[in-house]
Amino acid sequence: MKKNILFVLLDQFADWEAAFLAPALRGGVTPDLPGRFETLFAAPDGQPVRSIGGMTVQPDRDTTALPDDCAGVILVGGMSWNRPEAQTVAPLVREALGRGLLVGAICNGASFLAANGFLNEIRHTGNTVEMLRAWGGERYTGAARYEERQAVRDGNVVTANGSGTLEFTRECLLALGADTPEAVEASYAFNKQGLYRS
């Protein structure tokens, strides 16, 4: 039985930030091989959410609990991670970290982690250290561990800035062992460079 990866979407989520990761997990890193995971999508109260680009998603579940056989939680960035409904996600992150599951956060998902003190003891990145300080206030004490990189993996936590979609995908796939490192790197290179180099 395949393990589940839970993608958390809030209203005004960033369409593109899970666009490479979810298919690679469910459909396979390379098109000729099956994926090793199932993907589930969650939103507060299980209600539909609308993306920045106008796509409406009916989630599979709400954010009250991790799914059975969960292997990771992905916080998809967007414009609502500083709103009250986002706080329903903090217990999920805490549980996932306590169980040693993957926690991936991109864009304002990483800002949410900073605001809740989850980045203080690990190497990480985000949409600038200044933004993490602004969101986190006194709860964010990890600025010395901030790295100016597209994506950073430290143990079972992957963070990325909003323009690091492919790097985020690569680091999450590697952390999960979704395929061989060579296949993951080849997929990253293809999606980054395309058929022809500019």
Results as ranks from 00 to 15, higher is better:
G162P: 07
N191F: 15
G46A: 06
R145A: 02
H124E: 07
D68L: 07
A186F: 07
N116A: 05
D60R: 13
F20P: 02
A22N: 09
Q47M: 09
D45G: 11
K2I: 00
T125W: 03
P84G: 03
R149W: 00
V103N: 12
A71I: 04
K3W: 00
G35F: 13
P48L: 10
A144L: 04
A18Q: 12
G98Q: 09
T180S: 15
A43W: 06
P84I: 00
V49I: 11
M1Y: 11
G155H: 02
T169M: 14
W81T: 13
A110Q: 07
T128C: 06
T165A: 15
W16C: 06
R26W: 07
R83S: 10
T128M: 03
A183H: 14
F168L: 09
V76C: 12
G54N: 05
R149A: 15
T63E: 04
A22D: 08
E147Q: 13
R50T: 15
F41G: 03
A183T: 07
R139F: 02
T141Y: 00
N156A: 11
D32L: 07
G28V: 13
Q87T: 13
L33W: 00
I122A: 14
P181A: 07
A42Y: 12
A90Y: 05
A144F: 03
E17M: 03
G136R: 02
F190A: 12
L195E: 13
V57M: 13
G137T: 08
G104T: 03
V184W: 14
E138D: 15
R149N: 04
N120T: 01
Y188T: 08
Y146K: 03
G46M: 09
R145I: 00
D45V: 04
P48Y: 13
P67K: 04
C70A: 12
A96Y: 07
K3Y: 00
V73C: 01
G137N: 02
V157I: 15
R149G: 01
F118L: 10
F168H: 08
T64Q: 10
A22M: 13
D154I: 06
A151T: 04
F112H: 08
Q58T: 13
P91N: 08
G27C: 10
C172H: 04
L173D: 14
V158A: 00
N161M: 06
A96M: 09
K192T: 10
E85T: 04
P23G: 12
A65E: 12
N156P: 01
D69V: 03
S80Y: 05
T63A: 06
H124F: 02
N4R: 14
P181W: 05
M79Q: 14
T159C: 08
N4M: 03
L10Y: 06
G126L: 08
P67S: 05
E17Y: 03
S51D: 11
V93A: 08
